[in-house]
Every structure is written in structure tokens, then in C-alpha cells.
Design a protein around this nucleic acid. Structure first.
Length: 266
DNA sequence: AAGCGCCTCAACCGCTGGTAT
DNA sequence: CATACCAGCGGTTGAGGCGCT
């Protein structure tokens, strides 16, 4: 185990030499869990000292929040979660903690890793910048349709029945107004996800319910035609939904068949 | 079996903003 | 107001796992 030599925390040299780094042991985990169970989380620096762990407060906090905390989910992201990440990233960029707030049990670190290892990997395959309009268009054309398809197949509440969708859509009314309204809806969707199945972000949900969605024909453009819903977002931020089809030709030009292997993504 | 390269993800680092003194 | 301290954030790293040769 390496020993920390450089720290920004306020520790003297002797403390620095005693601090542990690297992977946590089972004993350390148990100690941290036991301490937090007794005393609660927070005040990480004093926690680190009082608990007897030879770790920095930062390290304790990270270990707890990203791994040990009981409500942290482990395992692969579901298609629903991936869909939400793509949408939220298109709105907020690399605001990982903000995105994580809308995925219960998922950490900013996990989402960040997902983006870097899965999404940016696809961007590299396509030889385009993952922050570019082109890549967002590629997502819209090829990735999201397949995610929608996965969501339809995996969601327990999903149904191809039009009547079911109409009922669900009625339940969404009155529609939230503006960006804040949308985010409230997304918050409630996220909080409901564990008990009653995942709900799509407001804009996707209404879009899907408004049009018969045809994955095979890459008919995802119908969603962007649902302008009133999109405008209700009231956001000046760039969104996946903002793009029109005019940029799609380059993707159709053989690239998708070659590179867009969705099976690698989950 | 060994060596190599790639990928994943837990953990670290530097920085920033908020708060207390 | 200035300073110190702390929590949290986003970027980066590197150990370990895995597949391929």
C-alpha cells in the first residue's frame, strides 16, 4: 500500500506519512460503516480522525458515497438510466453530480465513468468529438432509438398498447411549464423508479406518447417534430431534441453500419 | 502458460465555493 | 474584510481484470 506524500488537507508531515491510500480493505470498510452508523455522516475530516481510519476525510467521504452507502446501486446501468443520462448530459454537459441527482442510487463517479468509457468510446469510433453537434445528432439517430426499444422491452409498465399510453399521458396533465416544471417531473419520475418502474423524462414521455414510434425505420425524428413539448422546456441549453434531420446524411453514409454497435453498450 | 494491450472503475488530485472565525 | 477550513465537484490516474495472440 502506498503512503500519501502530498496532500491539500491540513495535516502535518507525520500524519501524512501515516495516511493510507489506494483500495480500501474490508476492515476499513467495516470501520467506516460502523462509525457512520453510530455517528452519522458528514464532518469528514473529524470523522476520519475520530474513527481511527488512517485515511483523509475526502477519502472516507468518497468511499462512503460511491460504494458503501446502503442506497448505492451496483451493476450495469439500465437502458432507462442510460437514456436519462444522455438527455441530461445534452442539457447540462459534464455536470455529473447534477445528473446523478436524477438517477437514484447512482453516483456522479459512476455516471462519469459510463460517459467516458461507453459514450466517448462510441464518439471515438465515429471519429467525432463527443461534445459536437454531430455526435449529438448521431445519438439521436442511432443510439436513442435503440435505447427506447430496450426501454419498451424492459420496463414492467411498458406496453405497445395505444390505450395504455393515452392513459399515461393523461396522468401527466397538467403539463409542467418551463424548465423547472420539467425538472420537477423528472425528479418525481426518478423517485418513483424503484417502486413503480422507471418513467421517462417528461419530454421523451410525451413525445413517445404522441407518436407511434418506429425503431426499424429510425423514425426518431418524429420526436423532434413535437415542437410544442420541446418549446415548453424553456431552456436555452443545447438539447438532443433541438436538432433537425438535415445533418443526418453523413451518418447514413455507411458509418452507422460500421461503427454503431449498440451491443457494446450494455 | 506467458506476454501484451485494452478496458473498467475505484480512488486520487486540484480546484472552487460556501461558511465560520 | 481577510483568512482558514471544509465539502463537493470534475478531471485524471492506475491497478486489476480480461481477451487475444
Amino acid at each position: 500500500m502506498r503512503v500519501a506524500k502530498k496532500m491539500t488537507d491540513s495535516c502535518n508531515e507525520q500524519e501524512l506519512d501515516e495516511l493510507r491510500r489506494g483500495p480500501w480493505t474490508l476492515d476499513e470498510d467495516n470501520l467506516l460503516i460502523h462509525y457512520i452508523t453510530c455517528h452519522g455522516e458528514g464532518r469528514w475530516n473529524s470523522l476520519a480522525k475520530s474513527s481511527g481510519l488512517k485515511r483523509t476525510g475526502k477519502s472516507c467521504r468518497l468511499r462512503w458515497l460511491n460504494y458503501l452507502k446502503p442506497d448505492v446501486k451496483h451493476g450495469n446501468l439500465t437502458p432507462q438510466e442510460q437514456l436519462l443520462i444522455l438527455e441530461l448530459h445534452s442539457k447540462w454537459g459534464n455536470r455529473w453530480s447534477k445528473i446523478a441527482q436524477h438517477l437514484p442510487g447512482r453516483t456522479d463517479n459512476e455516471i462519469k465513468n459510463y460517459w467516458r468509457t461507453k459514450v466517448q468510446k462510441q464518439a471515438r469510433h465515429l471519429k467525432i468529438d463527443s461534445n459536437s453537434k454531430r455526435f449529438v445528432e448521431a445519438l439521436r439517430q442511432f443510439w436513442l432509438p435503440r435505447l427506447f426499444e430496450k426501454v419498451e422491452h424492459t420496463s414492467p409498465s411498458s406496453s405497445t398498447s395505444t390505450s395504455t399510453m393515452e392513459v399515461d399521458q393523461k396522468n401527466l396533465n397538467p403539463q409542467p411549464q418551463g424548465k423547472e416544471g420539467m425538472m420537477e417531473n423528472m425528479n418525481s419520475s426518478s423517485s418513483n423508479s424503484e417502486s413503480s418502474g422507471f418513467k421517462l423524462p417528461y419530454v421523451y414521455e410525451t413525445s413517445l406518447h404522441s407518436h407511434s414510434y418506429n425503431v426499424d425505420n429510425n423514425n426518431f425524428d418524429k420526436i423532434s417534430l413535437n415542437q410544442p413539448d420541446v418549446q415548453e422546456l424553456g431552456s436555452s441549453d443545447m438539447s438532443i431534441l433541438d436538432f433537425q434531420l438535415t445533418d443526418a446524411e453523413w451518418i447514413s453514409n455507411g458509418l452507422a453500419d460500421t461503427f454503431w454497435n449498440m451491443d457494446q453498450l450494455w
